[in-house]
């Protein structure tokens, strides 16, 4: 594996986390640098979504051990909103419907909170509308959807596109895509993946959490990790994803002596 000589962006050391008293993550170690794309794969129940939730700061999960550093800051000390403002973005596996909160109001509030965090003035109405228009095109999101309540009545594919639209609006340094491919047909998958690729640069990084290889045909990772029983048990290049697609996860379990 070749690694760029950039600074560290995300460093996870021996991360353990519980939900409702049950240990899900059992010592994760992972390093992500700017410009990198990592894929985290693994069978159901291995802890993939827990990892993404813990990184985004979901209070349902309790970190019991280990540390997470993001650009030199202790991430675990930060509230979810502070993590967002620092540049972490989670694309939800199940985006939440919020009737009564319009997409416009939601996005304007989010953008202004980010600007406040950076000690910038609130965005002007015309700049905001321009930004909305520009970023909508990244994922071909219909204007009609942008004028509705957050995710309310959106189809599965529209919800996922809406996630990437929000990502485009907030321009994160680290994007975590949690099962973004689930529930998408092939056209929606292509649109979502294109959106992610358009937003990629040498300054930001992407963590793709997925069960299947098919998203990785579009968003090409340099590093593939296998998460199993709360630990990363194997890391390799993109060829690992293809091998998993072909052979399933049983051979890894065998390698581990199960």
């Amino acid at each position: 594996m070749k690694r760029r000589k950039f600074n560290l962006m995300l460093e996870i050391k021996n991360l353990h986390a519980n939900v409702n008293g049950k240990e899900i993550l059992r010592g994760i170690n992972l390093t992500v640098r700017p410009g990198e794309v990592h894929a985290i794969m693994g069978p159901n129940g291995s802890g993939k979504s827990t990892l993404s939730s813990v990184l985004a700061g979901n209070p349902v999960f309790e970190v019991t051990e280990g540390e997470v550093t993001f650009e030199g800051k202790n991430l675990l000390d930060l509230a979810p909103e502070e993590r967002s403002c620092e540049g972490i973005f989670l694309s939800f596996q199940y985006p939440v419907e919020i009737p009564g909160v319009s997409m416009v109001n939601f996005m304007r509030t989010a953008i202004n909170e980010h600007r406040k965090y950076k000690k910038q003035e609130p965005i002007s109405a015309s700049d905001f509308l321009k930004l909305m228009r520009e970023k909508r095109e990244v994922v071909e999101l219909d204007n009609k959807l942008a004028s509705r309540s957050v995710n309310e009545g959106f189809s599965g594919g529209e919800k996922k596109r809406n996630e990437i639209f929000q990502m485009a609006m907030l321009e994160p340094k680290l994007a975590i895509l949690d099962e973004t491919d689930s529930g998408l047909d092939i056209d929606a998958l292509r649109i979502v993946a294109n959106g992610v690729n358009k937003l990629k640069s040498e300054h930001n990084a992407t963590l793709v959490i997925t069960h299947y290889q098919r998203l990785l045909d579009y968003i090409k990772p340099e590093f593939v990790h296998v998460l199993y029983k709360g630990k990363i048990v194997k890391s390799a290049g993109p060829e690992l994803a293809l091998e998993l697609e072909e052979k399933g996860y049983d051979w890894i379990k065998k390698e581990l002596g199960e």
Binding site: A79, E81, S84, L90, V96, G100, V101, A110, E113, Q166
Partner: peptide, 22 residues
Amino acid sequence: ALFYLRARGISEKEARMLLKFA
């Protein structure tokens, strides 16, 4: 919903206000 809003950078206080208003 509260976590979803906070994950986009909206403070807990503001997020609660938005949800009550909604």
